[in-house]
Design a protein around this nucleic acid. Structure first.
Length: 199
DNA sequence: TGGCTGATGCGA
DNA sequence: CGCATCAGCCAA
């Protein structure tokens, strides 16, 4: 079942980030279906989060979509190379987002291997936000895409995730965020080999 | 096995 | 100028 808009418009981005574990992320790029189960996420909490692009209500052409009502995609380029895929949550004018960092491949594995220039599936096929986007064909064309649409969307396939299966830790690559760098807002499935880092 | 570094676009 | 990254290199 495709996740409805009401899943994304809820106010607690940390809770949504945890609940996204075990959900499925799919893209249909030029008729080619790829996707898999989300195994790693990070929560970014709007204007009050020093790690968030919308910290202090920063509003630019890039961050504008973060202020949209939940249920759309925020895609941006980092290090001049990788497109990172984020899910916008909460109500309009709140700039909360969840970064999806890794999936366990499920659909279209052959196509993902082609896009990644790999011969056989290994965990680094989709472990890490940059390479995951390569595998799924995600780029800035998906900036602002409706997550209840037919190009990029999420599904609940009934995979049960107990809170005991979820590990937490500080978010990766945000040392500049002061005390917020220590917030335990990275979530991953314990023991899952498709997660980007053990700790 | 682990640390360093180059590649590279763009927001501030 | 430095970044919500990754892979390839080299030393051990």
């Amino acid at each position: 079942m495709k996740l409805p808009k009401s899943f994304y418009t809820r106010p607690d981005v940390v809770q949504v980030a945890q609940e996204l574990l075990g959900k499925y992320l799919f893209t249909n790029i030029n008729g080619i279906l790829t996707g898999g189960m989300i195994v790693e996420t990070e929560a970014y909490s709007g204007e009050n989060d020093q790690a968030c692009h919308a910290h202090l209500n920063r509003r630019t052409q890039r961050t504008e979509i973060m202020y949209h009502e939940g249920g759309v995609a925020y895609v941006y380029l980092v290090y001049g190379i990788y497109h990172l895929f984020n899910i916008i949550t909460n109500r309009q004018d709140s700039a909360d987002a969840v970064l999806v960092r890794a999936i366990e491949p499920q659909e279209g594995i052959e196509e993902m291997l082609l896009r990644r220039n790999m011969a056989i599936p290994k965990p680094n096929l989709t472990a890490g936000p940059g390479v995951m986007s390569v595998a799924l064909g995600i780029n800035k064309k998906l900036y602002g895409a409706d997550l209840t649409g037919d190009t990029v969307w999420l599904e609940d396939r009934g995979t049960p995730i107990a809170s005991a299966d979820i590990a937490t830790g500080p978010r990766i690559g945000i040392d500049y965020a002061g005390e917020d760098a220590q917030l335990p807002w990275r979530f991953w499935l314990k023991g899952n080999k498709w997660v980007s880092r053990k700790r």
